[in-house]
Structure formats: C-alpha cells, structure tokens
C-alpha cells in the first residue's frame, strides 16, 4: 500500500515474437511487478520462463530479437517504455537504466582496454570532462585495486570476477536509477559470487540505485533481495518479500523451495518438480503449472492463466487454490 509511485512498474505485459507465416508466438503472458526506488528485486524462474525477455523489454532491446511488447505497460519514471521510439530510447537506455549481462567472460569488448571501455560509457553521459579521473573513480567504486594498471589492461588479462566488476563499473557510469543484473555470477566461483553480491548491496545503499537481480538460485536471492518475483512459463506466478516467500502461496514456489539443497538434510530424498516447464507455443489452457502440480483441481485447467490475486505491493499469487497451501511449503 505505497502512496508513492514505484520507479518501475511492469503491468500485464505480453511479449510476442513473430513465428512462421505471420503467426505470433507469445513468449511472456503476463508479467507483473513493481520496483521501488532503492529496492533490490530478484526474479527467479527456470530457463525459458521469460525472465530475460521481460528485462529486455525494460532496457529496450526486444526489437533486436524481433520481439515486441503486444500489450501492457512498462512504466519507468513517467515514461511507458512499451510505447516509446528508438530516439527516445537513446535518451534512456544506458543512462537511467544500466545493464550487466550474464556472461562476465564475454561481456567486455576483447579488443579495447578497460580505460577505452569506461571512456565510451562515460562519453555517453554527454559530459566529456575529466573522463580519466572519473574512470578511476568508477573502478574504485567497484573495489578494483591497482586502478592504474587495470586501466591499461585488456579483458583477457583480468579474471572473471574482475571482468564482471568492470561491466558493473560501465553500467554505473551514468549513475542510473535502475540497474539490471542478469545472472551476474553464473560461471564464477562461490567466493567471487559473494564478493559481487556484497558490491551490489553497497551500490544500492551508497547510490540509492534500484537493482533487479535475475537468478535461478533462490538461496542467492534470499540473501540479498528485498522482494522476489517468481516466473513460470512466461507468467508472474508469485510476488512477495523474501519473508513472504518463506510461506509461499504458489505450488511452483513451494516446489522450488523444497528442491533447495541448502535446506535438505544430507542424504535425504530431494523433492523434484514433476515433468518439465511447458515449451513456448505448447502452453495448456488454464494454469500453465497445472500439469506439474500435485494439488491440481478441475478448475485449474480451463480458461486463461490465472491473474495475480491480491493488491499490488502485497504478497500476490496466481494460484486459484492458494488456501490449500497454507503451512504446506514452510521451510
């Protein structure tokens, strides 16, 4: 029940991608969540659940994949990002919204020195003064030591963790209001992962940046985020605070929680989710989790995918029978 408007509001977003002969394949239907100023929000879901596509809608790179937002609104700071043109995007992308891509190792341009990459990012702000000093400040900010040496180095000379820090520095060059980190630590060691997470938390508290962290690791999201958005087969199925999600209201979240290895007793039977996520284009009627759900009822497999129940900003679920779950998924 916030009276203040959230910084980002994704409302009933449907994303389609052209498929054979003028057919449109729906890949996201529907995404719904808010990000408030200074909030850290985690998006979880299996591969193919549409989490990256929603983020592409927020940074305006959907068109490069041929996809478009067919319905719904992506409200950011007074703009509807679903409706603006490329010229307007140029004013926003990389300025108010920063993006840290998934592959730390392939992220930075391999033939440019770190200094050149930071210079490019800083020129983008329109302020071309003191670029060298500002580059160094950015590297300081992401806790890189030996700044002068690193400035002259090429990405191949840096470790995975360092490269990801450089990517974060580039994304922060324009002091964005929102930073999107798409699986920023996949492929990195656990120790490096925890350092990057600490860094994101510090950036949030020192600069007040809102952060969206995409991950399939619930444990990681638990540690650093305020709020969690759970996606399954292109739809937001549950939204709540980390605390709310301890008592999940959607059977998919319950299943995700119970397959977590950090809470299982050594050698005990791990709970697995039945079957696999339905492929795009083969979604069944009604709730798209119904075929994998142990609590399925007759009314689950008819009509549209259930909409989120509950007020925006509260603990929301897209399960018609959430009352059956009370207490069942507590961990």
């Amino acid at each position: 029940m916030t009276t203040q408007n959230p910084l980002l509001s994704v409302k009933d977003v449907i994303i389609g991608i052209p498929h054979r002969r003028r057919e449109t394949l729906i890949i996201v239907n529907k995404a719904n969540f808010d990000v408030s100023s200074g909030e850290m929000v985690g998006i979880v879901g299996e591969s193919g659940s549409g989490k990256t596509m929603v983020c592409r809608a927020i940074i305006g790179t959907l068109e490069r994949r041929g996809a478009t937002v067919l319905e719904g609104e992506v409200l950011f700071d007074g703009h509807d990002l679903a409706k603006i043109n490329e010229a307007q995007w140029k004013k926003l992308r990389g300025k108010s919204i920063g993006y840290v891509p998934q592959s730390a190792l392939a992220g930075p341009n391999p033939v440019l020195t770190i200094e050149a990459q930071l210079t490019e990012a800083l020129r983008n702000t329109g302020d071309t003064k003191n670029i060298k000093a500002r580059s160094k400040e950015l590297l300081d900010l992401v806790k890189i030591r030996r700044v002068d040496t690193v400035m002259k180095q090429y990405p191949y000379q840096l470790s995975g963790g360092m490269r990801q820090r450089v990517m974060i520095a580039c994304a922060l060059a324009t002091s964005p209001k929102l930073l999107i980190a798409d699986e920023p630590t996949t492929g990195l060691d656990v120790t490096v992962q925890s350092q990057i997470m600490e860094l994101l938390k510090e950036i949030r508290s020192s600069m007040g940046t809102s952060i969206i962290l995409i991950s399939h690791d619930l444990a990681l999201i638990d540690d650093v985020c305020d709020k969690v958005v759970v996606m399954h087969a292109g739809a937001t199925v549950e939204v709540g605070t980390v605390k709310d999600l301890e008592n999940p209201l959607h059977p998919y979240t319950v299943a995700l929680n119970s397959s977590r290895i950090d809470v299982a007793a050594p050698g005990s039977e791990l709970v697995t989710i039945l079957g696999s996520a339905p492929s795009v284009g083969q979604w069944q009627a009604g709730c798209r989790f119904s075929l994998r759900c142990g609590l399925v009822q007759p009314d689950c497999s008819v009509g549209e995918h259930p909409a989120l129940i509950g007020a925006r900003g509260s603990h929301q679920t897209a399960c018609l029978h959430a009352d059956r779950l009370k207490g069942a998924g507590a961990r």
Partner: peptide, 13 residues
C-alpha cells in the same frame, strides 16, 4: 571458513 561463508542461503549464513 571463507568458502563456507560464501555459500548463498542458509548454509552460508
């Protein structure tokens, strides 16, 4: 100790 503290979630906490 450092490795253990780096595990996300309950184990690391």
């Amino acid at each position: 100790k450092l490795l253990l503290a780096s595990i996300p979630g309950h184990l690391g906490t």
